[in-house]
Amino acid sequence: MSQCLQTVQDYALRAIGIGEKLLPRSDFTLCQQVTLIGSGLIWNLYFGFLALFFGFFLANALAVARFSRNPWLRKPAEWFIFVFRGSPLFIQFFVAYEALVQLPRAGIDVLGITVATSWMTKAWAGALLVLMLNTAAYSAEIFYGALRNVPKGELEAADAYGMTGWRRYRRIVWPTAMRLAWPAYTNEAIFLVHATTLVFFSGFPAFRQQGDALYYASYFADKTFNPFVAYPIVAGYFILLTLCLIGLFGVVNRRLNRHLPGAAKRLRYRPNLIR
């Protein structure tokens, strides 16, 4: 037990570079596996939450652009959504990495200021960028569908109150669209968090053996020749993570629906998968 505490001290933050430098090389214990894989989960959380956060805003902008009647706004948004929804995330990672390493190492001169580029090839930036654009495309499609389904009556009521433009969008259209989109968006969030496992299996290399949960799981599976321990541990962690996510989105859902008497109190799973 005390040995395990020691392991936790050594490896709980290994994925972000704090603690023991070398990974365990032999005599692997269950405690080591649970600790290190849990430590890798930090990266999954980092990618998942930041990508969702930034992606949310970008997706809203894209949805509005796609809904717009101006082709200069609509066409680019449609193409962006088509490219990111139409191709596998796995390939997007590869292409993004290969493209990012082509940026000049010394940095790019923008108006006399040198902008460093080398950090873009690191997983924390490059993979986050890909995940963000990817989830933005999927979410934009969801939000676009919701915008189209905003009840005509609500829009007419807003007009009657003399609301126009931004005010009408912010106070009437957007809240209703969010309410309609939320169940599907919850789904998208779960898929995105699951997709973070691909980061270190794709083009982005692991620095100093700091990787995500699956990186450590495959490390253990390869060293112990036994996939029947490490992978189920990852699976367990992800089930917990998914449950937390559903809980969190459920809270938001209740808030979005709070004015509707008898509206769905619980988020129901939509079998029409969006991803």
Binding site: I190, H194, A195, T197, L198, F201, L214, Y231, V234, A235, F238, I239, T242, L243, Y269
Partner: peptide, 8 residues
């Protein structure tokens, strides 16, 4: 499949 990533 809701709880566990497919790649696992």
């Amino acid at each position: 499949v809701r709880g566990v990533p497919d790649i696992i």
